[in-house]
Write a protein that binds this DNA or RNA. Structure first.
Lengths: 170, 170
DNA sequence: TCGTGGTAGTTGAAGGTTCAACCGGGTACG
DNA sequence: CGTACCCGGTTGAACCTTCAACTACCACGA
């Protein structure tokens, strides 16, 4: 209800603009987005829980490390790349370190920095997890869309990401 | 790396099919989706934290209730509609009940059922939160896309939702 | 070189989510 | 009837994330 056109427009107060509500069609699309995104992360999460040693988020973290030249990245680079808080990365890396997936060490130049490095065990885990991960991404997303749909989705979300980044510079 | 075409294709074992990796362009789009969706929920979450009495998720819950004829829904209907676990809904509703936003009561027909009802206070909270919520949805998503992009996004996510629902019937 | 302020990362507590176990109430089938 | 199984919902513990300090270091200006 509250997202629909309100029944009776009454006088406006000083500082609150008239909200531009979503029309019925916009609302339908917005709900579809919401529902789809929730179900998708849920499906991916379960897939990882059942088939993999690492959670969806831990997997993404391993991927970032693996893509970096030496399989190593500073904590802050990791946090920025994953669009997550430093605190969260610290905790997650700590847990992963005890499992032997990554290793932490000091950085050469900046004595504040901490370098997070992929271990052999971490790389092995990633290689094992990758096929089921990609298969799930395909099953729930890529392969259920036409190539044009997929492109449109990606481009749209890139615009959304840009808007979020701009409005709230992390 | 692991989502790219692997360097050397080696012999395949019995039960693992060759994974169909994402090509560079697909990967770019997939990453854009991931990044955008993370940043978007993050931006929405902060918006609610700063400007509203209720979290993003609690807001959605209130919306569902408000859309129902009597401002009331069974716990299971709530869980299904929000695509969330029953447990989570139980906990969330319990917290919201102590804040006076909703009320729980027994259902008439099925003695197992629990009816969750929006209180006046809950409705007031929703009405207050709605304008900033919609404004945020517009600022970070709707208004940064062309109408065609927005429609494409919604339709694509509807397809994703359907795929997830089908593969994992909740 | 001394402050001041910003950056990198960690910490622990508080709060939310998930998981598995559980309690009834319904339902179907002998 | 009774009993075995499913459904609706709750519980509490384990786990993860968030938040607000806090430490340590860098960088800039006076």
């Amino acid at each position: 209800m509250p997202q629909d056109e309100p029944a009776g427009r009454t006088g406006r107060t000083d500082h609150d603009e008239q909200p531009r509500w979503l029309d019925a069609e916009q609302q339908r699309l917005w709900r579809a987005y919401l529902d789809g995104s929730v179900r998708f992360v849920d499906a991916m999460t379960r897939e990882h829980d059942e088939q993999s040693e690492v959670s969806l988020y831990e997997y993404e973290l391993l991927v970032r490390l693996s893509e970096s030249p030496d399989g190593a990245l500073r904590m802050s680079a990791l946090a920025d790349g994953l669009a997550q808080s430093r605190s969260r990365v610290t905790h997650t890396v700590a847990r992963m370190e005890t499992r032997g997936l990554v290793r932490r060490s000091a950085t050469a130049d900046d004595r504040r920095g901490v370098l997070c490095t992929l271990t052999d065990e971490g790389r092995r885990t990633l290689v094992v997890a990758a096929p089921t991960h990609v298969a799930a991404v395909r099953r729930y997303l890529v392969d259920v869309l036409t190539p044009e749909q997929f492109r449109a989705l990606g481009e749209a979300m890139a615009a959304v990401a840009a808007a979020c980044r701009e409005a709230r510079p992390s």
